[in-house]
Nucleic acid binder design. Structure first.
Length: 201
DNA sequence: CGTGTTTGACCTGCGC
DNA sequence: GCGCAGGTCAAACACG
């Protein structure tokens, strides 16, 4: 079964993964107000075996290995090309390291650009066969960070945006640094709270 | 002028 | 071996 998370709003428990514009302010109230911007995180799907993204805030033991995304009725993400060839990706399939962990989110949003606090640089746009909507390719613009994400609208419900993250940030989100903590043992980042610590403003 | 976006071309892998 | 499809590159362009 696919690791489809329960419907979520404003991923306060997802340190560096999708949220929405306006998060720069960084507070619970912001998440509430985000909803007015037509953002609703509906599903999250782990596409790849391996550790959860460091900033995802979950021990990797809690992460189901190798998820069959194709089982997700509305989110045939990796299966978008599985009709004839499974995940036939272009030549650049990279080794599955921690950098190669992938996770997809399905969010309801009017805008495709979900500001997760990181700075992304668009490097490509491609129309995909099984979807009338083009797929956009972004790369984390932080130097030394090779995290990528693909953004496309749900072919079945264009009101949903499917965002696929690939890789793990090796740095903190500029907008989340205020309320996350780093585990000294693993070096991973966890959400410490939803409010800015005193004196951080 | 610097930064980011757009867009067509190119590369690579897979199915037939 | 060929064609198709996805992913990436890079030059041109737009904007602040």
């Amino acid at each position: 079964m696919a690791a489809v998370g329960a419907p979520l709003h404003g991923p306060a428990n997802m340190a560096s993964y999708p949220s929405h514009a306006g998060q720069g302010g960084g507070s619970c109230d912001d998440f509430e107000s985000d909803q007015s911007a037509a953002f609703d995180l509906s599903d999250y799907i782990l596409l790849d075996e391996g550790v959860a993204p460091a900033s995802f805030g979950q021990p990797e033991t809690a992460v189901p290995p190798t998820v069959d995304v194709g089982q997700t009725s509305e989110t045939n993400l990796a299966a978008s090309g599985s009709g004839g060839g499974g995940t036939r990706r272009g030549g650049v399939e990279r080794p599955r390291t921690a950098e190669g962990s992938r996770i997809a989110f399905r969010t309801r949003s009017e805008v495709e650009i979900l500001d997760d606090g990181f700075k992304w640089r668009k490097y490509g746009k491609k129309s995909v066969k099984n979807s009338p909507n083009p797929r956009n390719y972004y790369r984390c613009s932080t130097e030394g960070c090779s995290v990528k994400k693909r953004v496309e609208r749900d072919k079945e419900d264009p009101s949903y945006v499917i965002t696929t993250y690939e890789g793990t940030h090796n740095h903190m989100s500029p907008s989340l640094v205020y309320y996350t903590t780093q585990d000294s043992a693993s070096g991973r980042f966890y959400v410490a709270g939803c409010e800015l610590p005193p004196g951080s403003s």
